Simulated scan of single mutants.
Amino acid sequence: MPAVSSPSSRALNAILPLVASGQPYEAHQKARTFASRYNKSRQYDTAIDVLFQSARELLKVGQQGSGTDLTLFLLDVYESKGEVVNDESRGRLTQLIALTGSSGSWRKTIIDRSIAWSAKHGDCPAGDQDMHHYIGELLYKDGAFNIAEPHFLASGKRDSARLLADMMVEWSAAGGAPGIFALRGTLPYLQNGNILAARTFIFQFISQLISSRPNIRSPLQTSPLPVTPTSEITHTKEPLLNFCQLAVLTCQRANRDKNQAIRESWVRLCGTYQSKGGVLATREVRAVLQEIATLYFAIPPPRTQPDNPFGAMLSSMMGGGPPGGGAPVRRLLSPAGPSTPGLD
């Protein structure tokens, strides 16, 4: 292995050859010793370089335990330094997350700590959007759909919404009504005020679903149905799919209490579909729809509301605090008007 020339060269030239020669334990111990010294002397960048390169090489040779330990130490140094989220600091972590592999709990440990760091030192209280997207895509490719889902939702980027839609279509093919999977993507994005992601998700979902299952399109309306001069829906045999499309378009045109016609459209939409029973009529989903109604249409919630575990889960997923911490803060949102595509 060639000699390293950098402020951390003395340490790395002592550590990396040990990895290459099959002495991972000795390499791990030396890495911790050197990094501790640098950290204590506030040579944070040198400590970070030592830990990153040592962890990377250990993970490459299958030493997940040692590599994870050094990665967590790296995050401790990030905290000591006050390292902010940027392409370089994020990139080190995503490399190590990828190298950790899917066996055991090592990767989850690194992911959880990395997201917590990015939430504290980045711009998004739910964790860095790019990191969430990367992790979601990685887990999706590994077939860990249930673990990837909250990362795509927390990211909220258009690319995340598209991949979430592709994943949900694939997931629904293994069993389960497609409408439930459509709802799981649409409602959280709407609840978080992210119309652009909600719109991207549902239309990608419908497009991919019809490509794989063309018979789900309604025989009564085989071509897209215009709703506004710039928007249309694809009528399907699944009521939830139709509801999700209409819900997104209605929220997109909302202007809180300034557009009475759209407010009434939302009330009729929810009432019509909830009257048919099913998941939309359950207490948990009704509470989520009420929150969306308040957020977009300024429709006040009932004076007393039952506990809403589904809503609490979505709130927590989106970075909100747990219930019971005092009077809730009323969120305000000014969604896009008819001429703008939505919010990101």
Score class of each variant (00 low, 15 high):
H151V: 08
D159V: 12
Q208K: 14
F243E: 09
T236Y: 13
W171S: 05
S172C: 11
Y140V: 01
W171D: 00
R199A: 11
T222W: 00
E149D: 14
N242E: 15
T186Q: 05
Y189R: 06
P226E: 09
A177P: 08
A161C: 14
S155M: 08
F205V: 07
L241C: 02
Y140H: 15
M168H: 14
Q208R: 13
F243R: 04
R162N: 05
P239N: 08
F201Q: 08
A177S: 15
A182G: 15
I180T: 11
A144F: 05
L138G: 04
I206D: 09
A161E: 04
K237W: 03
G185F: 10
S231T: 14
S223C: 13
L183S: 03
R199D: 15
I147S: 03
I206Q: 01
I147C: 00
F152A: 03
L241H: 07
I206E: 03
N242W: 08
S172P: 11
P224I: 01
N242T: 13
S223E: 13
A154M: 02
P224R: 01
D166S: 11
N242A: 05
L153E: 02
A173I: 02
E149Y: 10
P229E: 09
P224T: 07
S155V: 08
R158V: 05
P178H: 06
V169Y: 01
I210A: 07
S223H: 13
N215S: 10
G179C: 07
L240G: 04
E238V: 12
W171I: 01
L187Y: 09
G185R: 10
I210L: 14
A173Y: 01
R199V: 00
A174H: 15
L209D: 06
R199F: 10
V227E: 14
P214A: 08
T230E: 12
L153N: 02
Q204E: 14
A174N: 10
P239E: 06
S160E: 09
G185P: 09
E170I: 04
T200K: 10
G179S: 01
E170K: 00
D159M: 13
R213T: 07
T230M: 09
P178I: 03
T222N: 11
K237S: 14
G193C: 12
A144M: 06
